[in-house]
Design a protein around this nucleic acid. Structure first.
Lengths: 173, 173
DNA sequence: AAGTTATTTTGAATCACTCAAAAGAAGGCT
DNA sequence: AGCCTTCTTTTGAGTGATTCAAAATAACTT
């Protein structure tokens, strides 16, 4: 059983405030949420809260080591409570959904590069890109939750463009 | 014996312009460069070029499959010419220098997640974070490459950022 | 050489996040 | 309980990186 948000905060040496507790709770419900998303949730119950406070809280949490920041390419920062177990992420290239993937090794760095180039490696971050089950369905309900609003830019850009229609316009609705 | 920039562009089905060729060349000299960096280089010989053109060119290159975008957490987008071989990156948490690391497997996805959660995995992106040899030296000359200007946000939460976008440097081998 | 289409320029907007000062709470102390 | 100090939240801006769009210009085709 999870401790209360207040306990978790206090345990991390942080002052307990309603706002922080709300941010913490929101993160429990949305394990990979952007600051804006969290703000939206928190603001439902506390209309006077603003995004800055959320950023503050999240930053403090991160400094205190109770949240981890993740930044998938082309997406805004996401925050998660799961820390210290060096897990990785699966990101849907269509809707942006993120899922945790356990790390087989469990501690960082879990991988060794072929050549270190003399670097003192501290960690290996792995992001898997793919299409989630929901988006794979023909008539996908297209859920855009904690998702992307600029083009989902990602590694799967490796595909060459043999046909060069060179169109740069796509759709201006 | 790389083909000329013009040849490479034409082969990719892109119109050849002085500007694009310059961007392409700049990328050859700076294998992991930010748009601003490239603009700086290109502008030396073509003072009238502006950043937008560089972004346009890079975007077109990426669409055509001849450049790959990489976005290490907390840093601006970087571009590289090495495509199609699914390599990975080593990023210095201090100065931001990026180095390529060959992928042992060579094709994407080179890793399989422990659990796919039903995703159709297309690729696995690996970023190694560590301290480069130069920054590891006691009296490190502290080089700021194509580097970080907001706090170096990354798996290893390290030190504050340098002051200004000094210059390039990155891989003078 | 002219025409068509793509690209560059220009100028501006946006998003996501950060900074800083002032106002407001938390928690310790008496 | 009340006071005081310190930390948080609010307020109000500011910034960097990237994107958008219309007008001007240059490539390639014929």
């Amino acid at each position: 059983m999870a401790p209360s948000a207040a306990e978790a905060l206090r345990a991390a040496g942080l002052r307990v405030t309603e706002s922080r507790a709300a941010v913490y709770e929101a993160l429990r419900e949305h394990p990979h949420a952007a600051a804006e998303t969290i703000h939206g949730i928190v603001a439902e119950g506390m209309p006077r809260t603003n995004v800055q406070s959320v950023y503050n809280a999240l930053g403090d949490f991160a400094d205190a080591g109770i949240v981890r920041r993740i930044e998938p390419a082309g997406k805004p920062m996401l925050f998660e409570l799961r820390v210290g177990d060096n897990h990785h992420h699966l990101v849907c290239t269509v809707c942006g959904t993120v899922r945790d993937v356990d790390c087989a090794v469990g501690h960082a760095p879990c991988l060794e590069p072929v050549s270190t180039h003399g670097f003192a490696i501290a960690s290996a971050e792995v992001t898997y890109w793919g299409v989630c089950p929901a988006c794979a369905e023909p008539d996908a309900p297209r859920r855009t939750s904690d998702a992307p609003r600029r083009t989902v830019e990602a590694p799967p850009r490796t595909s060459p463009a043999p046909t060069h229609t060179s169109e740069r316009e796509e759709g201006t609705p």
